[in-house]
Write a protein that binds this DNA or RNA. Structure first.
Length: 590
DNA sequence: CTAGTTCAACATTGCAAAAG
DNA sequence: CTTTTGCAATGTTGAACTAG
């Protein structure tokens, strides 16, 4: 049945032992001697740590699987080779004596790359995979302390033991593996290295959670209930945990060990922190702040979310009032008056930068599609509301308007303009190339902050650059834009919507000029925004800027505050890392 | 050689936000 | 209410390793 004879196998085992060979070894090929051999093994192994390995004949054909021929059980000073191939088991299952030994809760088992061995044992002798729940796979350990190192035996031996394993035929290799695993010193060496690595290698992000995962795996051996030591450690308010992309890990843990996600409420995800460290602007966002503050215990002056909101709101009132009072609005429903209105708009504008926005009756039902009802054009001081739905245009915009829109000297702005382009093309056949020169602030911000959440609506832009949350009632947005008379609220809404866009753009430009902070500069360069807006700024006349100086300084101050907060957070994080490092020292995996 | 795994890249799905 | 869009979780595939 076997390619190589039994004698050959045994002689290899006997002759090729390394110098530090075990004092005793035993080869069992008779089921009746099994109990005695196991007792003997237990007796000589005070630490009850046993390494396991299986050997079977390689299969070279699809579907062909050879049963496990040899099971090696090794303690520090004793190796027992159980020649399963020589034994006859009545029901094809391993004898109870062996199974009892393997399931003994008082013993600790080790393996290397055990998954393949366990599947082979299951196939050969019906050993259920659950038997190995408490087995510690040193490949996993090695991976957790040194993810770069290959988990092959060659690499691991060389790394942990400092010499190259004898490279020879498959047989010697296999036997050497048995010997290698049997030597508990190796395991100790590996685990010693683990403790050491834990201290220094904590920065390698994968380490903490892998180690923690191993602990769980290890603890599970001793009983179905999670050990109190571990639970206490996890729920100890004095401990701090770090993770990297923890969401997926926590779900895996929940699935595997039924650990509640709530356990990780206090866990700090380094990915989040890192993202915020690199990005000063987005920290101002409400959601990010909530997230941010939610993770850090209140320090110094208590800054709650409510306080934040209050702080913002006071500014919001100022801004909102200023915006509302500053602008002159004009509603045009007569095609013949479009030209005059646009000329007024053009003449009162100093920088020739115009913000555009469209409104239409919402398509509430499937297949419904309403034409654009209102086109809002805003300069820095004037707003023109063109009620296209009242002009009886017959699917074509007035020439004056088209001329205005296609004028090369003017700069147009929009946010999320893609959908507006679609609607305008559908309603009035405006070719999309008309908008080639249009700056979409949404796109600009997306370029500025790569890697951030790209779902940036006008609401967020206003918050980010103007410092308050615009009131955006659904009732107005979803209202009837084709009504005979627009309500005051609708007019306000439409005006502000367009004005916000213009204000944001001017705020950006002022920030660009005023804020010489290095990060900002870098970010602008990176995002290509500098070139984008800078070009426009050069072409256009200088901005009067008086009305907005207040806002800009406020924005700059705030950004600076955020930046300082981040520095503090970074220091705190580093301190926590230190603490964690010392803490992890005390919690070796084993 | 085959079987099993791990990890990446890619596609798919569901969800939340934003738009009117 | 519908639609679109990006994100995050999930599923799938294939290459690279490791095992005998």
């Amino acid at each position: 049945m076997w390619d190589y004879s039994d004698d050959e196998c045994e002689s290899e085992v006997c002759e090729e032992y390394p110098p530090d060979q075990p004092e005793e070894r035993e080869i069992v090929a008779n089921p009746h001697l099994l109990q005695r051999a196991l007792d003997n093994l237990l007796e000589r192994s005070p630490d009850k740590v046993f390494a396991l390995d299986c050997e079977w004949r390689p299969s070279y054909r699809r579907g062909e699987r050879n049963p496990v021929a040899l099971l090696t059980i090794a303690s520090q000073h004793h190796v027992t080779l159980i020649r399963l191939c020589r034994m006859y088991f009545r029901d094809g299952l391993l004898p109870a004596t062996l199974m009892d030994f393997l399931c003994d809760g008082g013993c600790h088992f080790l393996g290397s790359g055990w998954s393949s061995d366990s599947s082979a044992l299951e196939y050969s002798y019906g050993v259920p995979k659950e038997t190995w729940q408490g087995l510690l796979d040193i490949q996993a350990v090695s991976k957790s302390i040194n993810p770069q190192l290959r988990v092959g035996l060659q690499s691991m031996v060389q790394h942990y033991l400092g010499f190259r394993p004898p490279k020879s035929s498959i047989i010697t290799m296999g036997d050497w593996e048995a010997q290698w695993l049997s030597d508990a010193q190796i395991n100790y060496a590996a685990l010693d290295a683990l403790g050491e690595r834990n201290r220094v290698a904590l920065l390698t992000i994968a380490t903490p959670d892998r180690v923690l995962l191993l602990r769980l795996c290890r603890m599970h051996l001793d009983g179905d209930v999670l050990p109190d030591v571990l639970l206490d450690f996890l729920e100890d308010e004095g401990n701090h945990f770090l993770g990297n992309g923890w969401t997926s890990d926590s779900s895996a843990l929940e699935f595997s060990y039924d650990i509640q996600r709530g356990t990780w409420n206090r866990l700090i995800d380094i990915q989040h922190i890192a993202r915020q460290m690199n990005d000063e602007m987005r920290v101002g966002l409400k959601q990010t702040v909530r997230h941010y503050l939610g993770f850090y215990p209140p320090k110094g002056p208590q800054i709650t979310l409510g306080d934040w909101e209050a702080f913002r709101l006071s500014e919001a009132q100022i801004n909102y009032a200023a915006l509302d009072a500053l602008y002159v609005g004009e509603i045009v429903a007569n095609p013949s008056r479009v030209g005059a209105a646009l000329r007024r708009l053009y003449n009162t504008s100093q920088d020739k930068v115009f913000a555009l926005d469209c409104e239409w009756v919402p398509n509430l039902k499937h297949g419904e599609r309403h034409p654009v009802a209102l086109l809002t054009i805003a300069s820095a001081s004037h707003v023109v509301l063109l009620r296209l739905c009242k002009m009886r245009l017959g699917g074509k915009l007035p020439d004056d308007l088209m001329e205005f829109l296609e004028h090369p000297d003017m700069q147009f702005l929009g946010t999320g303009w893609a959908s507006d382009v679609r609607e305008l093309e559908y309603s009035y056949g405006i070719p999309s190339k008309t908008w080639d020169g249009l700056v979409d602030l949404q796109k600009v911000v997306r370029e500025m902050f790569p890697g951030q959440d790209q779902r940036i609506g006008l609401k967020h832009l206003v918050w980010q650059f103007l410092g308050f949350w615009p009131p955006k009632g659904c009732a107005i947005t979803l209202g009837d834009w084709e009504a005979q008379w627009l309500t005051r609220a609708q007019i306000n809404y439409a005006m502000l919507d367009a004005l916000y866009v213009g204000e944001i753009f001017r705020c950006m430009r002022c920030l660009q000029e005023q804020w010489q902070a290095e990060e900002w500069h870098m970010r602008c360069m990176q995002g290509g925004w500098y070139a984008h807006v800078g070009q426009i700024a050069e072409a256009a006349a200088p901005e009067e800027g008086e009305a907005f100086a207040e806002q800009d300084t406020a924005g700059a101050e705030e950004a600076e505050w955020d930046y300082e907060e981040q520095l503090a957070a970074q220091e705190e994080w580093e301190a926590e890392q230190q603490e964690l490092a010392t803490r992890m020292q005390g919690c070796s995996v084993y």
